[in-house]
């Protein structure tokens, strides 16, 4: 489920691997030193301790180096986030309504679904609307998450680069069936999407008044 080359996978996994690599080096260093000291300076081997009170150059070193490292981490985190927040102007806008405990997707032409169908390689903007409490729109495969909060117009976007079906989960606790509030993003080749879209439009046109009424009701 994480194998897809979609969404912000490179940004997110890149930052993760960057921080993970630094962390592992430091963690291994700390742990090995700790174990080595405990063995080398055990009371048996070293009955007489040395009272070393400190070392200012060392303190400066291990303040400055971690500071540089974490500022690097901050920077990569910010760069990746910039791409997430800048929504392309040509994105297809889909309204996502979260309610206890289901998702609803409304397309520009008024088509409504409970599964999010999107064309491959196109930017998709999701306008996140909550009908009741806080939810969170989470697509793990796309490394995408944004809270859905009543009276707040949150937006998110993604571009799927591989055909397939991916889980949508609710990540903000929302009561009894929180863990069942799953849906799917179905990524289709563009022509498949277009024919699906046209077909859906046909069916939804059969009762356009009904759709409009429901939409107003939902607000």
């Amino acid at each position: 489920m994480l194998s897809s080359d979609s969404g912000f996978i490179k940004d997110v996994d890149g930052v993760f691997l960057f921080i993970l690599a630094i962390s592992l080096v430091l963690l291994i260093l700390i742990t090995l030193l700790m174990v080595y000291f405990v063995i080398r300076y055990s009371r048996k081997r070293n009955p007489r301790p040395s009272n070393i009170e400190g070392n200012v150059p060392l303190e400066i070193l291990w303040t400055v180096i971690p500071t540089i490292l974490v500022i690097g981490m901050f920077y990569y985190g910010w760069i990746g986030y910039e791409r997430m927040k800048n929504i392309p102007a040509d994105a297809i806008v889909i309204e996502v309504t979260a309610r206890m405990w289901e998702w609803e997707f409304v397309y520009p032409n008024g088509v409504k679904t409970d599964t999010l169908y999107v064309p491959l390689g196109k930017a998709i903007q999701t306008n996140l609307i909550s009908a009741d409490v806080n939810h969170s729109f989470f697509v793990p495969a796309f490394r995408l998450k944004k809270d859905v909060i009543p009276n707040k117009k949150n937006q998110a976007w993604f571009r799927a680069d591989e055909v397939g079906a991916y889980d949508i989960a609710c990540a903000e606790y929302c009561g009894l069936k929180h863990s069942y509030m799953y849906s799917k993003v179905v990524v289709m080749a563009e022509e498949d999407f277009d024919s699906w879209y046209a077909q859906m439009y046909g069916t939804s046109q059969a009762a356009p008044a009904d759709t409009a009424a429901k939409r107003t009701e939902g607000r």
Binding site: F8, D11, V12, V15, F16, I19, L20, S23, L26, L27, I30, T31, V70, M73, F74, Y76, G77, W78, I79, G80, Y81, R83, M84, S136, F138, P140, R143, L144, K145, K146, A171, E172, Y173
Partner: peptide, 21 residues
């Protein structure tokens, strides 16, 4: 230390979007 390092991961904005909650 493990708790601290994984805290750094969540401090990074892009990664936080994935790891949060």
């Amino acid at each position: 230390s493990i708790g601290g390092f994984t805290g750094l991961m969540q401090g990074a904005l892009a990664l936080n979007m994935h790891l949060h909650d």
